[in-house]
Amino acid sequence: MSTLEKSPWLIHYDASSCNGCDIEVLACLTPVYDAERFGCIVTGDPKQADILLVTGSVNNLNEPVLKNIYEQMPEPRAVVAIGACAYSGGVFADCYNVKGGIAKVIPVDVFVPGCAARPEAILDGVVRAAGLLAERRRAMGRGKRGTVTEGEAS
């Protein structure tokens, strides 16, 4: 296994979520789901993170913030969009200030479905993202830039 796959550190950004998915992200850390089994650590600093978890949809105000966080992460990096809002804007899609899903602003690797997404699904998304990271690192090692592959819903 690659170094990145064994120690995927996460940063969680709440775009404009209703907090439903956020609670579920936190639930992943609880004894029942125990994300640390996979070596996951939730960090607050994008410079220390490998995978960006985003909940909620993008609006005009948080768009630069999301971009900034993404850009401050070292490469290779992966993005997991959690929940219906992060996929398409969800029930808020028609709101005057909502731009839509996360993929409109930054490249997304894994979409986790649900409203709210279930912790098992979120963990699955993280593990898949970690696998992608390892692949991307290998690609970078061969001198190619890691291509961003749109992951399918798990």
């Binding site: 994008p46 630069p64 913030v65 900034n68 401050q72």
Partner: peptide, 11 residues
């Protein structure tokens, strides 16, 4: 050099 992290608010 990179810029310090400012909660994504600064560039």
């Amino acid at each position: 050099l990179s810029t310090a992290y400012m909660s994504g608010r600064s560039n």
